[in-house]
């Protein structure tokens, strides 16, 4: 009963988001919400590692950047056709698959901090690579490119990103409630016990890493399409930190959390940048976020959605107690 209510509510919100561009037609708002959709996908893929499997990555941006660069380079070289985009998709998936598999195999059998360090190193390597390989990437300056005309329309692109987010959400929802997803959560909860039940923990971790990597790559593709511009900043540590923040503020170990986190961070980002004229501090918004981050970790370690769930549970308990059950 309760379960169905949840889905109806979700469908209503989705429906509202689908018609939004025709109700409220503001260019800057549409662009902002589109960014939120994209980062929500990126954050959900990150949460599959952090929240569901218990793996900390400091280099999730590497997959994001690969997706973005494949798209940019592909569309620039092969022209703004759907075929070129399809090629870029293939390359993104293959590269992310390979890289996540290699990084995973190298480090996931070791203690968790090795994985964190290795991802950091790999991302740094890719960033330097993108800077130096100027013939391919135009270095730090980056380049602009055209996208298929159909996607040029902001409303269409908004709907495209929304659909993208919903599909990934449903896929990940299916994943986390599947036998495979439950084992991931078991690993997060108690790796030793998962082993003693007979699960090959390392394989599970590597697969979680691969799935998270490919989805991050896809979100990077859509990100590049939305900007029609790319430079080395897609590999920056900031991107990983942003997505870490989104996941933690929204609520680790939930799928809704990263979406809400993405919405909050992107909106705050936008508003603070506008306030930069008022005081210089607002331009250094990362300082403020650092503060928020510390406060959240100290007082709401479960994030918004996690805290909400817990609170709801307590309320339900109270109700039961009142009924004398």
């Amino acid at each position: 009963m309760k379960w169905e209510k949840k889905w109806i509510f979700g469908a209503m919100i989705a429906l509202f988001l689908f018609v939004l561009p025709w109700i409220y037609d503001s260019r800057s708002t549409l662009i902002l919400i589109t960014q939120i959709f994209i980062f929500a996908v990126f954050a959900m893929s990150y949460d599959l590692l952090l929240g569901y499997t218990g793996i900390i990555s400091f280099g999730h941006a590497m997959f994001f950047g690969i997706g973005a660069y494949s798209t940019g380079i592909g569309l620039m070289r092969n022209g703004e056709t759907w075929t070129a985009l399809l090629y870029a998709l293939g390359i993104t998936v293959i590269l992310c698959l390979l890289l996540s598999h290699v990084v995973g195999m190298l480090s996931l059998r070791l203690k968790s901090h090795y994985y964190a360090m290795l991802t950091l190193a790999f991302t740094g390597l890719l960033q330097v690579g993108a800077e130096k390989w100027r013939s391919l990437t135009k270095g730090n300056d980056g380049f602009t490119f055209h996208i298929p005309e159909f996607l040029m329309d902001r409303k269409i692109f908004y709907l495209f990103s929304l659909l993208f987010m919903i599909i990934i959400f449903l896929f990940l929802y299916q994943l986390i409630s599947s036998p495979f997803g439950k084992v991931l959560q078991a690993i997060r909860e108690n790796e030793r016990r998962a082993l003693s039940l007979g699960y090959q923990v390392v394989h599970y971790k590597v697969w979680a890493n691969v799935i998270a990597g490919v989805i991050a790559g896809l979100s990077g593709m859509v990100y590049a399409l939305s900007l029609r511009f790319i430079n080395t900043s897609v590999f920056a540590v900031d991107i990983t930190l942003d997505v870490l923040l989104m996941t933690i503020i929204g609520g680790v170990g939930t799928l809704l959390g990263p979406i809400i986190g993405a919405a909050l961070i992107e909106t705050a980002h936008e508003m603070l940048t506008e306030l930069a004229d008022v005081h210089w501090l607002f331009e250094r918004w990362i300082i403020l976020f650092g503060l928020i981050y510390i406060l959240v970790v100290l007082f709401f370690p479960k994030g918004i959605v996690g805290t909400w769930n817990e609170w709801m549970k307590k309320e339900r308990w109270k109700k039961w107690n009142r009924l004398g059950l």
Binding site: Q174, L175, S178, P179, F180, G181, K182, V183, A186, A194, L197, G198, Y199, Q200, H203, Y204, W207
Partner: peptide, 17 residues
């Protein structure tokens, strides 16, 4: 308990179960 049952049944990498 289901995780143990699942391990026993040899159900491992099933996403669309």
């Amino acid at each position: 308990v289901r995780l143990a049952v699942q391990a026993r049944a040899g159900i491992h990498f099933h996403v669309f179960y």
